[in-house]
Design a binder for these strands. Sequence first.
DNA 1: TGCCAGGATGATG
DNA 2: CATCATCATGGC
Length: 286
Amino acid sequence: MEITTKNGTVEITGFGEINLALTLDCGQCFRWKCDGDGIWRSVAFGRAIGVKDIPGGLTLFDTTEEEVREIWLDYFDLGRTYDKYLKEIQKDPFVRDAVKKYGTIRILHQEPWETMCSFIISACNNIPRIKKIIERFCLIFGKPLPNGEYAFPTPELVSQLEPEDLSYIGAGFRAPYLVEAAKRVCADPDIFERLAAEGAAGAKHELMKFRGIGKKVAECIMLFSLGYDTSFPTDTHILAAMRDIYPNGLPECFSSFPGLAQQYVFQAQRELSAPKKIKHETEKQS
DNA sequence: TGCCAGGATGATG
DNA sequence: CATCATCATGGC
């Protein structure tokens, strides 16, 4: 891997492949937006940044080599190659097609607190609305950054709120869960370090003690922010589809990197379910 | 109006 | 332990 500075931007090459459009809009994160120049912009770890994928690498704006090494290499999961994972899960024919299209998605390493809030909000919700709720959450309660973006609201601030204070962001019945989670995190500042170290089973069990965090949300937090590659986000629709495809249980290859395999299958499933509406409309017209 | 969204929860067998 | 009814909000 090489990190160089050109014209005030930082370029990273030699880490393999990443497709930002797929990676940043696949439902694992909710705050990235693409501008007219193909630059994806967001805030993570309190730093605003722009990123663009170029052939063989990434160009990062508004950052430094030091910050790249400190934050963004790990955030974008560039420190390892996915080759062996992809090779393994492609032993299954159903996954092979999904990997062909979505194999350039990387699993981000996001901030645990932000990920926890995001997936509490995601419960029984849809991605466009999840994004809007989080955007308003940051706009109202996040610290403004120099470039007009907003940091994610801190647990310290959120813990001081009443659920009604969150009414504007439109989180609905999930609002009290956010405040409760903030209070717990403030009372136990090392919780995420402990969760990341204590093993998957224990971490999942402890996460599920939070109101608003069940099996699915716990697994998402673990996969997308705590470094548990072995977790397997359980989505009701995916599960139903998987049960049809694999009535006798999941194939062996899923155990090697289930989070990644599931992420690709989820994308393939989204693509499959999208044309239904168009089909329905054409049927209506004819 | 009715149905859905990458669920959670508590009560049952 | 698996399944099930209930909950709850905004968008389409």
